[in-house]
Design a protein around this nucleic acid. Structure first.
Lengths: 339, 339
DNA sequence: TATGAATATGAAAACGATTTCATTCGTTTC
DNA sequence: GAAACGAATGAAATCGTTTTCATATTCATA
């Protein structure tokens, strides 16, 4: 394994000069520069990352915290974040908290140990006061998830608006018995959507009944379970708002299997605009989230924070959401080949 | 930022003793050990990763190469790999090659620069002779993808068998005009499946026509495109083998939209057993791949190679595949509530 | 009671880079 | 022709650990 010393020896120059060539510093004669480059090539020399990190106090690695990567929303976020990070020359370490506060705190030590230059939190499992102390070791940027008490840069989507437009759409179709379905008790994303949901109901003077709320739905299986619960109610809802397309797909799948018609018997809106929304029958009305933009911004911001070393600045960057209307809410016109 | 020196000063001991406590080395009196632990706690001291990596010549980071993470097969692989790596105390860096040989070679420098202790290749974009030289810098383990010329540990699935059982299943249903659909020209995974596909055809004395082959299908949209191409043929196939559930779902979606019946007009088998296989209508017959086991084994193997430092050993670990029969191939019985 | 082993500790050398500071050599400037 | 400056280079310190080697103490054993 060739080191800078080997290159220095081979050229008869000092480590300093070699280092200058590597880092494109001035005051190296063209003659020596060529000599060094040739020697580096010949020895197959590449600077050692650990040594550089130690000396420069910088690893060029970011950590991205997500609950689990198999959730397509987070897959897309990881994809976009990795690409954006690579543009800046950063590597991305994936930290799956699996909804565990302990795992989250444990991964946070990456910042303390200086194994990463910064942390992007796309989900939050601990109270902010538990995370805040880590700010002394490096920047934390919130992306997607957020917390009012957190005095750090936050890149997020207007979830209140998302809940609002999706629900308003159902209300416009004449529904008054609308169920609410979400995942993540701790999540402010879910809470915001619920605020938007209730805001829309209030505007239409439609009351909300707590028995219509299901706040523990994450996966397809949860959707199936929730559907059965809804159908067991004495007064069944005619529409349901869900916090993810997976759950919406689960509901639809179970409904169709049980002989119900979507949207005639139950209108369903999803969230995320995932690929499955166009594959189910009927296709799923959903809310599109600009994940790529959000990821890009989060990386832009954290790179800037790493450079300026000002970590405790409350900056909010918010992107809009967009309703995508498909067959699961507006019925027959789009149901071209069914039945 | 407290260093080991600070802890040493606070306790009045040497760095050596503090280091011994950190690393649980023997020959430290219980009295001093406590003293050190208290001081570490008080200062909030945690060892610096870069310094450790430099000194120990070990980063405790693995790199996982995949084409793109939004492919659910690779999401699942990343999830399982991250969990398995974490058990060994390793972090996981994600390298999305996006099917680019240049990007792949570029990421390979992580090994050369010693930023990672090992590389798990779940996809291969370059000829092996281009990758082989990196073996002098650290272990490479193939996982999922493979190459006969590569003299390194390989954890893989029996793809020939996978192609075989899926195709045999179609043949057993009486199909003789069977199309073949896959993604990745360079991929030996795809090539193996094709071998299994043709083996099954041969056993049933069914000839294969090249116009039934579509080897550039990766996504849902490709499935839709392929469906249109198939229907434009003078002699249309009655069944199609696909290399991914996404493509199968695309085909089914497009077929249903155009008024065709699955499986009566076209039987479809997918690959991967992804969540969507149970959400489409009809549900998709597919081949289940034991991704978790494969990922776990790949991590076990690479950790061992890192320890033993023997990188050039050809070891093959192969896991079996399993056919999951659903409605997209066996028709009416499972189509309970359609029409 | 001397001897050797086991226990406990520290000084200093590594790991491989970058940076500070000093030095040398030309070239300009007054 | 001395002073000042810019260009080119290297020696050595530094980043924060772990490890090697040396030394000192304690303890058991002959």
């Amino acid at each position: 394994m060739a080191t800078i010393e080997d290159v220095a020896k081979l050229t008869g120059l000092s480590r300093t000069t070699v280092s200058r060539v590597i880092n494109n510093h001035p005051y190296v004669s063209e003659e020596k520069r060529k000599l060094v480059l040739e020697a580096m090539e010949k020895l197959g020399y590449v600077p050692n990352s650990s040594a550089r990190s130690l000396r420069n106090q910088k690893t060029s690695i970011l950590a991205l915290f997500i609950p689990r990567i198999t959730n397509p929303f987070f897959s897309e976020l990881v994809e976009a974040t990795e690409i954006a990070a690579a543009e800046y020359g950063y590597q991305l370490i994936i930290c799956q908290t699996r909804y565990s506060p302990e795992k989250e705190l444990n991964y946070m030590n990456l910042l303390k140990m200086k194994q990463v230059d910064g942390v992007i939190l796309a989900s939050i499992q601990n109270e902010w006061k538990k995370l805040k102390p880590f700010l002394q070791y490096g920047p934390i940027v919130l992306c997607n998830e957020f917390d009012d008490r957190a005095n750090v840069p936050t890149v997020r989507l207007d979830q209140v608006y998302g809940g609002y437009i999706a629900t308003k759409h159902l209300l416009e179709q004449g529904h008054t018995k609308i169920a609410y379905c979400s995942g993540g008790y701790r999540s402010n994303v879910a809470k915001s959507r619920e605020i938007g949901f209730k805001k829309a109901l209030a505007e239409y003077k439609v009351p909300f009944h707590e028995q219509y709320a299901f706040r523990d739905a994450f996966h397809i299986a949860d959707g199936k379970r929730v559907f059965q619960k809804m159908m067991a109610l004495s007064e069944r809802p005619t529409a349901v708002f869900t916090g993810s397309d997976e759950v919406a797909a689960g509901i639809i799948s179970e409904a169709v299997k049980c002989g119900y018609r979507i949207p005639e018997d139950l209108a369903v809106v999803g969230f995320d605009n995932q690929a499955i929304t166009e594959l189910t029958n009927p296709t799923i009305t959903t809310v599109h989230q600009p994940v790529k933009q959000m990821a890009q911004k989060a990386v832009d911001v954290i790179v800037e924070k790493i450079q300026t070393k000002k970590y405790e600045t409350k900056e909010i960057y918010e992107f809009p959401l967009q309703l995508i209307v498909r067959a699961s809410t507006i019925g027959s016109k789009l149901h071209q080949y069914e039945a």
